[in-house]
Amino acid sequence: MKPLKEFVIQFVGLKVGKHHFEYEIAQAFFDYFEYQEFNDVNVKVNVTLEKKSTLLELHFKAEGFVNVNCDLTNEPYNQTIESEFDLVVKFGDEYNDEYEDILIVPHGTYEISIQQYIYELIILAVPIKRVHPGVKDGTLGSDILKKLEELSPKLNENKEKEEEEIDPRWNTLKKLLTDK
């Protein structure tokens, strides 16, 4: 996959010290990755690159929202996102990205693409179970919720019916248990 130009940081010309980069992530970014789970995206990602003499330290911070469908009602809602991630870039003989928070790039590399790290940062910030806030506080009125309420088992009512429908012969056996 060809890297997007705006997510490539050329660190060779940068002075030793901290450098800040800001990115506005929209739906087009996820379309590029062919990720279809989000309806809309509005996330700001701040990247702080601290250049040192032998390595680079990157700190990613993402804040914003993604519009997703609720897992219970399929109603779209805005899921807020706040996430942070630290990455250390070291220089070595060959490229190695086996570790989660350490990236080794070959000597002579002059730029780094951070688009994959931003993509994963946002994807992993979304909860596994996505529930509309209206479902949690009971303010969402939905046909699906009404149908779920109708079809949910009624535990207390079923117990009372079962006790009424017990064969009377079993009642005498119950007395044996209590007559000890």
Rank of each mutant, 00 (worst) to 15 (best):
F7H: 07
Y32W: 06
L177P: 00
N46V: 12
E24T: 15
W170K: 02
W170E: 00
A125P: 12
G141Q: 15
D86T: 13
V66C: 11
L56P: 04
K146E: 11
L177N: 07
Q10R: 13
T178R: 04
N46D: 14
K180R: 13
P106D: 09
G108I: 01
S152R: 11
N171H: 09
T54H: 08
A125R: 07
A26W: 00
N42K: 11
H19D: 02
D86F: 07
N96E: 12
S152D: 05
D93T: 12
K175I: 09
Y32N: 07
V43K: 09
I123D: 05
I114R: 03
K180E: 15
Y119K: 15
C70L: 07
K154Q: 14
E63V: 06
G134L: 12
F91M: 08
S53A: 12
I144R: 12
D137W: 04
K15I: 00
I118T: 11
I81Q: 10
A26R: 13
K174G: 00
D93E: 15
K44F: 05
E163Q: 08
I118Y: 13
N39I: 15
R130F: 11
Q27L: 11
Q27K: 15
P168M: 03
E98Q: 14
V66D: 07
P3R: 01
V45L: 07
D143T: 14
S53P: 03
M1G: 15
E34D: 08
G13R: 05
L177C: 01
L151M: 10
V68K: 11
E84N: 15
T139L: 02
Y95L: 15
N42F: 10
G17W: 04
N42M: 07
F33C: 05
K136G: 01
E120P: 03
K52V: 01
D31W: 08
I166P: 08
A62H: 04
G17C: 07
I128M: 10
E50F: 00
L55W: 07
K136W: 01
E100C: 03
N171G: 03
S113M: 01
E164R: 10
E94L: 01
I9H: 12
